[in-house]
Each structure stands twice: as C-alpha cells, then as structure tokens.
C-alpha cells in the first residue's frame, strides 16, 4: 500500500465535502476489491473515504412488491433476510452464493455494482430484475447503469445510496463458479417481471448484458426447451485460463435453461 489519508464520515454531506477537498479520493465500501488492489500498489488514492459509518447507506426493507437495499448492506445480510427470501428468493440465493463467508460479511451491494467486475454476481440481479440504482444525484435504471468492464454510469463523486428491486413474478439465478475465486465463470439471471422477461448474463462478457433472443423466446414459451438453439456467439465473450469463450457460450445456454427450470 501507498500512504493515504483515511476518513470515516458519518453522513453523506460530510463524505461529499471530504471528497471535494481531496486530491485523488476513493470511496471505500466493503473493500473486497479496493483493499487487495491497494495492497498490491495497483492504486494510489490520496484519500480513502470509508462509508461504513454512514447511516443513510444502511437498511433493508421489503414491501409493496419492492425490496430496497442500502448500499452498505453486506451480502450475508441480504442472504439471511427473511423479507428478501420471501419477496425475491432468487436475490437472497444469489447473495448467499457470492464468494465465501468472509466476503459475504464484508462485501456490500453498493461496492459490488459500483465496481462492476465482469464476473460479479450482483450485476446480474440488478439487470435481470430491472432494479433502480438510487444515488446521491439521481435514480439510474439498471439498463443504463452498467456501461463497460469496471465502468458504470456513476460520476466520480456520485455515491450509490440504495438499490430497489421490483419483485418479479418469478426469477432464478444459475451460476457456474470459478473454482479458485468463486466468482462467476458464467452466471445467468432469468426473471419474469411485470415489464417482461429479462435474461442477464454475468461472468462471460466484458460487462453484464441481456440476451434479447432468449428473452423473446421465453416470452413466447417460458420453458427450458424454448432456449434450444439460442446461443450467445463466442466471439463476444471472454476467454482466460479458466474458460474459453466457446465454453462460456455453452455455459450460458446450460445455465439459462437451469435458471428457467429453477424458477419452478
């Protein structure tokens, strides 16, 4: 790590002031990516603004067909919430499958989607459930939020405050975990929502994305068989030492069918 100034504000206003006055500040949520990156000296922020004491970023509520999760809510809290489990069981299950217990108790939903790791799980739920990302400046629709690999619509000084998920008619997330990192080699979130069928894929491309062909097929016939013959072309997908693009393309098909099956 390089030297940096550490701040732990207790309100969003205070955080914004520190941010505005600092040279090259970074917000710190759970630190699941930021801290390893800093330890390896791959980042050199002048100031770290720890968000863990800001009450406005915590809290979890469910009701009236909506689950709202404060940005600093750790995955384990979402996974263990009876309310979430009841309203959107697929969301609770997804949170319960992120990383390992240490990650689930430190990592937060805000941190995860702001970082937008191409292999992270939460982006699939946000996009698949057509969630709204509430920030200190505005509300951003899921479809407009994730822009590219590690890129989002957020401005530098903009903080996610909470994410609201409309409860779908049914939904499921099927993930094929990288055995080393337990990130998604590929993960597919399928949801039947009020506004239609949504299929969101994480882990496989530069950034979470929807598969229109699958959505259309499932709109006509919500069954695993409806997806037969629909594939995301390998040339649009990631390849690394863990999985080729071709294998990821294959996995997307398998996982999409399994997700449909899991929705029951």
């Amino acid at each position: 790590m390089y030297e940096f100034q550490y701040h732990r504000p207790e309100s969003l206003d205070e955080a914004a002031k520190i941010f505005a006055g600092a040279d090259d500040p970074k917000f710190l949520a759970g630190g699941m990516t930021m801290i390893p990156v800093m330890k390896q000296r791959l980042a050199m922020p002048s100031d770290i603004i720890d968000l863990s004491r800001i009450g406005e970023l915590t809290g979890l509520s469910a009701g009236a067909g909506m689950v709202t999760i404060g940005a600093m809510t750790p995955h384990a809290e979402v996974a263990g919430s009876k309310e979430v489990e009841k309203a959107i069981p697929a969301l609770a299950a997804l949170a319960g499958g992120i990383g390992d217990p240490a990650v689930r108790n430190r990592g937060t939903i805000g941190g995860s989607i702001a970082n937008n790791d191409p292999s992270a799980d939460y982006p699939a739920a946000v996009l698949g459930l057509n969630a709204t990302v509430h920030t200190t400046a505005r509300d951003i629709a899921a479809d407009a939020f994730f822009t590219d690999m590690f890129e989002t619509a957020l401005e530098d000084d903009e903080l996610i405050t909470r994410v609201s998920f409309p409860a779908p008619e049914k939904a499921a997330y099927a993930k094929f975990a990288n055995p080393a990192s337990r990130y998604a080699t590929a993960g597919v979130f399928v949801a039947k929502t009020a506004t239609g069928i949504r299929v969101a894929v994480t882990g496989a491309g530069a950034c979470v994305f929807r598969v229109e062909a699958m959505e259309q097929a499932l709109s006509k016939d919500f069954s695993p068989g409806a997806l037969d013959g629909i594939a995301v072309p390998a040339d649009e997908l990631n390849a690394d030492i863990h999985a080729s693009a071709e294998y990821r393309s294959h996995l997307i098909g398998v996982l999409a069918r399994r997700a449909v099956l899991q929705t029951g």
Partner: peptide, 27 residues
C-alpha cells in the same frame, strides 16, 4: 486431480496463476 495447475505463459514466461484467485486450491 481436479483443480490445481501452475500455468506459465508460453511466450513471455509470466506466471498466469499467481494468486489464489487463479490458482484453485481445494476448499
């Protein structure tokens, strides 16, 4: 048998499995 493998890049000789994010230890 199932998980672990040290992989070097054939050309550059760089270690590609240099962390526990890429080198799969059994859990």
């Amino acid at each position: 048998a199932l998980l672990e493998e040290i992989v070097y890049d054939e050309d550059s000789g760089q270690l590609l499995t240099g962390s526990l994010m890429d080198y799969a230890l059994p859990r």
